[in-house]
Design a protein around this nucleic acid. Structure first.
Lengths: 219, 219, 219, 219
DNA sequence: AATGAATGAGAGTTCATTCAT
DNA sequence: GATGAATGAACTCTCATTCAT
């Protein structure tokens, strides 16, 4: 009877701290994304992580801390994934297109990451909602800057400066909503998703800055 | 039996059930919208409603029941508000425009209703998310039908049948996101909000069905 | 089978809040005095009180709150017991004597109260130690004032002003220590205990102010 | 085996067991005296000692063991300090005076030792309270023996045999309480402290055995 | 000899929910 | 019809203690 599968029933072997922390964060993201912050229990997270509860507290702090660190890690992942897909020397529409493709690729590959960031992060009352909101606000401002810049180039500065932020919020919402929709339609590739949004949004905006304006034909 | 001063000592007067139920639902919507489902406590709801806790259970059932009924009432309100603003014999773009104006008017007037529907309803793990999602899905399908119908009229049936649902999801997301943004910018009127969205989205879509297509200029 | 002892096994019948609060405080004093603050568990207190834990939290707050309120009630009892025994129009020594008798009577009758006040109240790190210490300090200052006053009357003002506070601390400690000793000797009456202390302390002090001073007879 | 630089990388050098034990006990006394038994954590003790937790368990056993050994060491120190100051061939009052001076000198120099012995040792429910109490009882008996002996020499045997133990308890309490008071008044020398107590207590007792008795002047 | 890694057990606290009046 | 009184059950978090290296 050599060293077969006779080891103790897979009970937590000694692993370096970094490895454990990753395991715990993985489990946390999974459980938080499934149940949301409040319904997730530290018991379940510890079970999924294959680790006892005290380890979580020792390594990553309170439930709130754990949630914050989960959010932070996934947000970083998402941003890095998008940045990795964007080449800064391309024209704006190409940058946006590449960014969107990377975004939808990420969402497809890391559903749980996206779920935690998009849906669960808002349910906590504390500073996390603020943090996430701040991140989203930054994204919106980025898009708004694009909008205003483009509008200015077309000589429509004043108008787009006024409507820019609102439009940017709408665009970001459209991208997010499409991402959610795509979760239920995995057969649609990230290229197609990005194209849809570009057609909808870029052409639409394009026309807008060309001077075309939709007006209600009656009261 | 005249209206003497013979009433019980001014506390908890006998009120018809319907009135009590409305009081309770009002309180529930308020508290749920402020704190979210999980952080809302039955104690606070009963306090805000001016009614003892057992009454809530007698009249409206468990916390989950109460939340469901709150959601349902607000959703009905929202739908009725939108339908009241739309005249079915107008062309599609006008219908959408009027619908959007009604929507933004409602959001401005009943912040709490919108908050509960949009933000808090997703945080519950049980059947409510499903219920809300279903309602949203219905909205998306409605928009999708518009998209497909318009596309078909332009002879682009196959293409829009394929992309229609996704686009519709994006549009709905854009409208919602702009609604959230508008909560922080009450100086923007519902007409302006709706116009922005129409310009962005309808013109964009218009071009799309006119045959204009954005294509990536390189890999 | 009439209404014998057939009632449900003595399970918490509805009682007015005030009664329950007293029950809980009684139990708290008992358990705190037995095990000390840290080792006392809310579970045991609730068991002894014949009440579920949530009631304690509803009526009296956290463990620390409960401890504080226990201390406060017992301290008040002790002070009232002492004040009730003292007649303010008697000469100082008689006042002290009556006060001591009341004190020892109280300790004998309410062992647990005394234990909580004397031994357990110091073990908590928070504000309770301060509160108790303050109370003790007030007692010491009172005695010190007596000492200084008596000394001044004898023309020894400067000397007793210097040594008064320390002497007072010693006297209070003597009284407390004798109280503890008396707990193991219930056959000694409060009158005897008070007399011992008076003889030891009053006469001693008396001689001191008469000018007699003990001096070391060599290095 | 010269003293090369071949030692393990400068952490936790091999030290003889006795040294390690002293380090740990020093840390334990310090932490116990600061936080009390319950609030002291093995983590903090190990940190202060500069030693890992398993070492503590290996060398000194459980937390209770550690506390017991801390108490024991400090008690021994105190007793030795007092005995060192007392010359057994002196008359009783001189013995007491020297003993008190040594006692107050010790308290001033080893505050933590005294704190652990006097305040923290009582807060534990187990056998330590007993151990400490026994030690204190021994001290009281010693003093009682002095009292009785002196009383007997004056021909008041019966009376002092009856009141001796109680008086001794009071004396010890006075000495302790004055020690606590002195912690906040370091400018008072041990000689002055001891003198105060001698004047208060010895003269008082002296008069007592001379036949003077304080009596209540009325009911 | 020495320790980082790991946990069992139990504490305080809160909340949705229900009785008895 | 209406409620103050009461609780079961669950959750987060901590700590003394030990294993495997």
């Amino acid at each position: 009877m050599p060293d077969e599968d006779q080891r103790p029933p897979e009970r937590a072997r000694r692993l370096p701290r970094a490895v454990r922390e990753r395991q715990i964060l993985d489990a946390a993201v999974q459980v938080f994304s499934q149940h949301g912050y409040h319904s997730a229990s530290m018991d379940e997270i510890s079970e999924v992580a294959g680790v006892s509860k005290p380890m979580i507290y020792t390594y990553l702090g309170s439930k709130e801390d754990l949630f914050g660190k989960s959010i932070q890690r996934e947000a970083t992942r998402l941003l890095e994934a998008i940045q990795a897909g964007v080449q800064p020397d391309l024209p704006p529409d190409m940058q946006l297109w590449h960014g969107l493709r990377s975004f939808y690729r990420f969402v497809a590959e890391y559903r749980e990451s996206w779920t935690v960031l998009h849906r669960q992060a808002l349910t906590v009352g504390g500073g996390f909602a603020a943090e996430i909101t701040a991140m989203r606000t930054r994204a919106i401002e980025l898009v708004a800057a694009l909008v205003v810049a483009a509008g200015t180039r077309k000589g429509l500065g004043e108008q787009t400066e006024f409507s820019g932020p609102g439009l940017a919020a709408a665009l970001v919402g459209a991208a997010e909503s499409l991402a959610d929709w795509a979760l239920d339609h995995p057969e649609i590739s990230d290229g197609v998703l990005a194209s849809w949004l570009m057609n909808l949004v870029w052409l639409g905006f394009n026309d807008l800055v060309e001077g075309q304006v939709w007006k209600p034909s009656e009261g």
